[in-house]
């Protein structure tokens, strides 16, 4: 009886080990199953989902116009102090002084891509871009000014 158990144990153990080896042997011989993504090589074909949050950008149209009114809603919504908006006063067509954005400072190094600023924006001036290769040699390069130089507020955006 003892001997029977003893050999039963051995047989079961060996059987379980062999089934494991069969599984790894299967993958060894079936190279179709390989899932490696060869990242820097497949850059050209890499498609990121449109909702992927890589960084905050401010789209400009062909006339170098953006939609940011400088209302600072995004600055208030940001949990990390990622966004700083510097405003200036401009004279509009009727000669009235009007607040406008001077520099939209975006600290990528502080950003957690939580999407709260995008949701807070009343004029859809900013959106999330799909770029994700953000590494630079100097941290100061991560502080970006999103509105392009000489850019203006798009007509009709209040």
């Amino acid at each position: 009886m003892f001997l029977k158990d003893y050999f039963n144990d051995i047989a079961q153990a060996v059987g379980s080990l062999l089934s494991g080896m069969r599984r790894t042997g299967y993958y060894f011989t079936h190279h179709k199953e390989i899932i490696t993504e060869q990242y820097p090589d497949n850059r050209a074909t890499l498609v990121l989902p449109e909702r992927f949050r890589g960084e905050v950008v401010m789209p400009h149209n062909g006339q170098n116009e953006h939609r940011c009114t400088g209302c600072t809603a995004c600055e208030l919504a940001c949990p990390n102090g990622t966004i700083k908006i510097v405003t200036k006063f401009e004279l509009n067509a009727e000669g009235k002084r009007k607040k406008a954005v001077d520099a939209f400072v975006y600290h990528l190094e502080l950003c957690t891509m939580c999407n709260l600023c995008i949701q807070a924006c009343p004029t859809d001036a900013i959106k999330m871009a799909q770029s994700f290769e953000h590494s630079v040699y100097d941290r100061s390069q991560l502080t970006k000014i999103l509105n392009k130089p000489e850019s203006k507020l798009q007509e009709g955006v209040e």
């Binding site: 990121l48 989902p49 909702r51 992927f52 949050r53 957690t112 891509m113 939580c114 999407n115 709260l116 999330m128």
Partner: peptide, 12 residues
């Protein structure tokens, strides 16, 4: 997750 939430790990 990436497709629906926009992030892979910390989705918020």
């Amino acid at each position: 997750m990436e497709e629906t939430c926009g992030a892979r790990l910390t989705m918020n």
